[in-house]
Simulated scan of single mutants.
Amino acid sequence: MSTITSRPMTFPTDDPQKVPFAGLLPAAPKPFVLGEGQGEKSLVFDQLFEILLSGDETEDQYGAWTMKARQGDRIPAHIHLKTHEFFYVVDGEISVWMDDQADYHTKTTLTTGDFAYVPAGIVHAFKIENTTTVFGAGTAGFERFFHAIGQKTDLNEPQGVYVPSPDIMRAAGEKYATVFMPEFQFRD
C-alpha cells in the first residue's frame, strides 16, 4: 500500500485571502468541475484573475489560474523568489519581458497558442497588447497572491481598475516572496 506524502508548504496554509472565497473550491484533493466564471476572482490593476485550482486541491504541488485583460500598461517589473510560473495565451496578445540579470534578456510578444516559462528568480513584467486571456500555473500557494494584492470581485470580465496601495503591494510581496522592482530597466 502506498501513501501520499505532502511536500513542505511554500506558502501559508491558513491564508486569510482564502476566507472570502470559502466553498468555491473544494479545499482538498477531490475531483470537481468549475463552469465558466465559477473560480475565485480578484481584480488586480485592470486584470481579472480567476483561481481555478489551488495548493489545497493539489497537495501543495501547484495552483492554476486565468487572467483576462484589455490592452493596458506594462505591470511593474518584479521577481518571484520561490515561484516558478508559466503563461499560455488562450486568446490575444501579451508582451513578456524576462531578465536573469546575467546573460538572458528578452522581450517577446506572445499570441494565441504561445507559451512562456518564468523560473523563480527571473525579473519579469508583461503588457497586454489587446484583449487577452492567459492560462497560468505556478508553485502551490502562490495563486493566493492575486487575492492578497487585488480586490475580490464577482465579475466575469475585467471592468474598472484596482490599484493596490504601496502597503498592500509590500505586504503581498513579503507574504508571497515577490519583490517589486519599479526602477528596473529591461533591455527592450
Rank of each mutant, 00 (worst) to 15 (best):
M1T: 14
T5C: 05
S6D: 07
R7W: 15
M9Q: 03
P12A: 15
P12N: 13
P12C: 11
D15E: 15
V19I: 14
F21I: 04
A22G: 02
A28C: 11
P31W: 08
F32E: 12
F32T: 00
V33D: 13
E36C: 14
E36S: 11
Q38P: 10
Q38W: 15
G39F: 09
S42H: 05
S42F: 00
D46M: 10
Q47V: 05
L48I: 01
L48E: 12
E50D: 12
E50M: 11
E50S: 11
I51C: 14
L52N: 12
L53E: 11
L53V: 06
L53T: 04
T58E: 06
D60L: 00
Q61H: 15
Y62A: 06
G63K: 03
G63H: 00
A64P: 14
W65H: 00
T66W: 04
K68E: 10
R70F: 12
Q71N: 01
Q71S: 08
G72P: 07
G72F: 09
D73N: 09
D73G: 04
D73Y: 04
D73A: 06
R74K: 15
R74C: 02
I75T: 01
P76A: 03
A77M: 01
A77D: 00
H78N: 14
K82C: 02
H84D: 05
E85N: 03
E85G: 13
F86M: 15
F86W: 15
Y88A: 05
V89K: 04
V90A: 09
D91I: 12
S95F: 03
S95Q: 15
M98D: 09
A102D: 09
Y104D: 05
H105D: 08
T106N: 10
T106A: 11
T106M: 14
K107A: 13
T109W: 03
D114C: 03
D114F: 07
F115Q: 07
Y117A: 05
P119I: 00
P119V: 00
A120I: 02
A120S: 07
A120M: 01
A120L: 01
G121N: 08
I122S: 08
V123D: 01
A125I: 13
A125D: 03
K127N: 03
K127G: 11
K127F: 06
I128R: 02
E129F: 06
T132A: 05
T132W: 10
F135T: 07
G136Y: 13
F142L: 04
R144N: 15
F145E: 05
F146N: 02
F146R: 10
H147S: 05
I149G: 07
G150T: 05
Q151M: 04
K152D: 01
T153P: 02
D154L: 11
L155H: 15
N156R: 08
P158C: 04
Q159S: 05
Q159F: 08
Q159C: 12
Q159Y: 10
G160F: 03
D167I: 08
I168D: 03
G173L: 13
K175G: 09
Y176D: 11
Y176T: 00
A177M: 14
A177E: 08
V179A: 12
V179F: 10
F180E: 03
F180T: 06
E183I: 11
F184V: 11
F186S: 08
F186N: 12
R187K: 13
D188A: 07
